[in-house]
Design a binder for these strands. Structure first.
Lengths: 232, 232
DNA sequence: CAGGTTCGAGAGCAGTGCTCTCGTTTCTCA
DNA sequence: TGAGAAACGAGAGCACTGCTCTCGAACCTG
């Protein structure tokens, strides 16, 4: 599990340095042109190296994209966690608003990265195992908030419908991460998908000329969802 | 505005026929490999024509994709409308469930098409004007349902938070299509983004190993949203 | 039936991901 | 310390892409 085999030799140093450089340049181009147009050759050109040399560091374009994917997951996760940490623990509603706002701000500032994470999967490739942990950072942070809020007595002000045994079994894996009653957990999942839906609709242009002031609308919607979650 | 200048000559017939053939083959390949990998040359090859000939019918790859986009919008819109039409007008809740279910079924059966519509925008291109009308078919159908339900007295069973003047102004364009009070309209928009969020999360693999039985989960969530909408 | 338009095919350009080879650099271990 | 192994950069090359241009044939119109 050692991600970085303690650089000892000059070669190790160079490798780490170059890997970082490629990643950085890839990131820059990703922001420019989006995942679909990201070109290994262009990255190599910018770095003044032969295109074939890049393959010493990333065995394929997809591997590069996967690395960028992980980076983006980590970054967005960090942004959300930081926003959460800046609010007093017991201000649950405020934490919710801070976290979702932070996610939106990040998405707005990193359009293509958001698309990479929550838009259509890029090539025909299944995201490898390395991506699942970083991918869950944001979700996990939100689940933690929901759990803490529930335990503090902030129960959904809104009736959640009873959950059948079938559905209960279906969400068992998530229930392990957030030990709250099923209806509350469903409310949480609902909130999460609303966030992603809202963000995707806005960023991908589906609200164009339908909603005029995205910021105002977003703020209102998140308050409404906070209401539904029973956060005070 | 005449989309098809009444085919009179043999040439006109051939043009329409070939355009259709290209579109159809494009559609087939889109379903196979996704929008990013869709290749004009491959389409031409399959149709046994020179790649340059395709450019007589579609000036660029993006134009082809745009045409497919419109087709997909139309198809999904039709599917949803049909599902709606099959339910008695006053069974508002059932209509909601039927429409959203139909959309999900279509999305599951047409993975790449869904990604094309609601995933990340494909190249760096802004969807041209021709796409806005077809794009709104599904949304419009849902808005109509909300309006009819409200007028029939099915008020949100759930308190909607008061809408500020700012937010009111922001959603004015949508309010024109669905003359219901602001809080109810917000509930509708919320429901719509929840649908898209839920679908995107499921189809793009973000619920993988988190939710086990997608169908059961979806059904429950849509019932919950119907509750929140106040549909009976 | 003459003149203009539309069409299909082919060659060609610039770009892509990726592979292979070859000579050089660097590391490791006896 | 020096020899063998491993890693590396560069270049050529393959098969593919979107797209353009040209040219002769087909067609349509007046």
């Amino acid at each position: 599990m050692e991600r970085r085999p303690a650089p000892r030799t000059a070669r190790d140093f160079a490798r780490i340095e170059l890997t970082r450089a490629i990643l950085a340049e890839g990131r820059r181009q990703l922001a420019d042109v989006g995942p679909g147009q990201l070109s290994l050759r262009a990255v190599a050109r910018e770095l003044q190296m032969a295109s074939s040399a890049v393959y010493r560091y990333f065995p394929s374009r997809d591997h590069l994209i996967t690395a960028l994917l992980i980076e983006a997951y980590d970054e967005s996760g960090l942004v959300v966690q930081d926003a959460d940490a800046a609010v007093p623990r017991v201000r649950y509603r405020k934490r919710w608003l801070a976290m979702t706002s932070a996610l939106r701000d990040w998405a707005l500032a990193n359009h293509h990265e958001y698309a990479l994470l929550y838009g259509s999967p890029v090539p025909g490739y299944a995201a490898p195992e390395d991506t699942v942990a970083p991918a869950q950072r944001v979700t996990l942070a939100l689940l933690t908030l929901f759990t803490e809020a529930y335990e503090a007595g902030e129960r959904a002000g809104i009736p959640g419908r009873p959950v059948s045994r079938k559905v209960h079994a279906s969400i068992a894996p998530i229930a392990e991460l957030a030990p709250v009653p099923d209806p509350a957990l469903i409310r949480g999942l609902l909130a999460w998908s609303t966030v992603i839906g809202q963000l995707s609709l806005e960023l991908f242009g589906h609200l164009h000329k339908g909603v005029l002031d995205y910021q105002a609308h977003w703020d209102h919607v998140m308050e409404q969802v906070a209401d539904d979650l029973g956060l005070q």
